[in-house]
């Protein structure tokens, strides 16, 4: 049994994470913000409104904005990179982000759920039937049991099936994205056994009630 209270206290003690933003590709960087600036992540029902512009990067005469991935305050900026040609994946900005309820919940759930890890570094997909179900009614509509063929592992242009092994239950959380490479050992899904549902629900309620977000964090 996990101690939700202790976990919450622990997170309350350091309610921030540092989010590092890196260049998506090469190009000439122009920084638009100084440390201390308030930024917000994408907004809207479909996340259709982009986050605050942190910088622009120009490559092949195409000036592209780089948006803040999340809410927070700019902690530091690599000002020496301003107007310079930078390599891809060069970090240039750190955002101090106050954890949201959803993030706190996800972090605690990761400790409470059964995590099924990726056996090797590869891209993972759900098998078509499951994928359809997940898309239509969310991952929690999917019941898994030991030995069930659940994933397709895509590696080096080859695809092979992967069976789930672990306790039966519903998929409570999905930790991989489309076409993301997942490292060996990283969790793919978090499974909640049927008899644990009440416990998990309790965790959710506790976090909802006890985690307070500062104004304007929405």
């Amino acid at each position: 049994m996990i101690d939700v209270k202790a976990l919450l206290e622990e997170m309350k003690a350091s309610p921030y994470t540092m989010v590092e933003v890196a260049t998506p590709h090469t190009g000439v960087l122009s920084l638009s913000l100084a440390p201390g600036a308030q930024v917000r992540g994408p907004l809207g029902s479909w996340k259709e409104k982009k986050g605050t512009t942190l910088a622009t990067i120009e490559r092949e005469r195409n000036v592209k904005p780089i948006h803040a991935p999340t809410n927070g305050v700019v902690e530091s900026v690599a000002s020496d990179l301003d107007t310079a040609f930078v390599q891809a994946a060069t970090p240039f900005c750190t955002i101090r982000h106050y954890l949201t309820k959803a993030e706190v919940l996800a972090a605690i759930l990761k400790k409470a759920l059964f995590l099924f890890p990726a056996p090797e570094r590869a891209k993972y997909y759900f098998v078509p039937e499951v994928d359809k179900k997940v898309r239509a009614s969310g991952s929690r509509a999917v019941k898994v049991r030991d030995g069930m063929e659940l994933f397709i592992v895509s590696r080096m242009k080859r695809e092979s099936p992967l069976a789930y092994s672990g306790p039966a239950g519903i998929i409570y959380a999905v930790y991989f994205g489309l076409a993301d490479n997942v490292d060996a050992g990283d969790p793919l899904i978090g499974v909640c056994p049927a008899d644990q549902l009440a416990v998990i629900q309790d965790v959710v309620n506790r976090v909802q009630a006890e985690w307070e977000e500062p104004e304007g964090n929405g």
């Binding site: 998506p24 590709h25 090469t26 190009g27 490559r59 092949e60 195409n62 040609f85 390599q87 891809a88 994946a89 060069t90």
Partner: peptide, 19 residues
């Protein structure tokens, strides 16, 4: 040696070539 996002992105190659 310049780090790029992908070998398959032509824009990266031309960008590095010019730089």
């Amino acid at each position: 040696a310049v780090r790029i996002s992908s070998y398959r992105d032509a824009n990266e190659l031309f960008s590095v070539a010019d730089a």
